[in-house]
Design a protein around this nucleic acid. Structure first.
Lengths: 113, 113
DNA sequence: GACTTATTCAACCAAACAGTTGACAACTGG
DNA sequence: CCAGTTGTCAACTGTTTGGTTGAATAAGTC
């Protein structure tokens, strides 16, 4: 079984699932309501929601026959943390590189003058 | 062909590819160097790098027979933008909900006292 | 109890994916 | 020019994925 971070990225790799997440930021919705705009079957949407659920992006409550779907936005933090960690590291490296280049330039300036 | 955002998420859904990205934040590296730590074939790593390249996360230069791989960290911004957009929207909704609940509580307090 | 609504389970299919091995291309250095 | 190094292309394989249809479950309504 894959780790959660992999599942979250994989879940959001599908445009339909990203769209579902986008719509859930507006408010909770039932499986049926969520399925309406698409011309694929309700079962397909149900599967998509299961993927989002397994990734921890979404939870379902029960309310009569309906299962209102709710967005769990905290999981976004997992991704943001991963992205920011490596972005920062990469940027740091570029700053160091900039510093080195600046030094080189300064040294050459010194030679030239 | 899928849109870039889908490709970026899909690319990072694989732990090996996330690991490659992590190592590239430290500095550029050749395909061979990148392949060494894993016990899968060089060809498999080459394929992974192609996926990262198609997603725009990585570029390859040519330098003799070697192809130093370089991380393009700006692409992270695409993801961050998507995530932040919907996170913000979700959080906004929760604040509104909090306000409503606070009002309800206040009203009940009023009744109780 | 029978019917309707809402959702999921199960079996199936085609396409994509992650890996393999083997051959080939491109470039270097003796 | 030949031998070695570095990387990719091609064909094949097993598994995962996104969709389908049809049947099953669960709850509410008449």
């Amino acid at each position: 079984m894959a780790d959660q971070l992999s599942k979250v990225f994989a879940a959001l790799a599908d445009p339909t699932r990203r769209d579902l997440v986008a719509r859930l930021t507006v408010g909770d919705a039932t499986v049926g309501d969520l399925a309406k705009p698409y011309d694929i079957s309700v079962q397909a949407i149900s599967k998509h929601l299961k993927v989002l659920e397994d990734a921890g992006l979404v939870t379902k409550a029960r309310q009569a026959q309906k299962r209102p779907v709710h967005l769990e936005a905290q999981v976004f933090d997992l991704m943001t943390a991963w992205i920011e960690r490596y972005r920062r590291q990469a940027e740091e490296r570029y700053s160091r590189l900039d510093a080195v280049l600046a030094d080189l330039n300064a040294a050459q300036e010194g030679l030239a003058s």
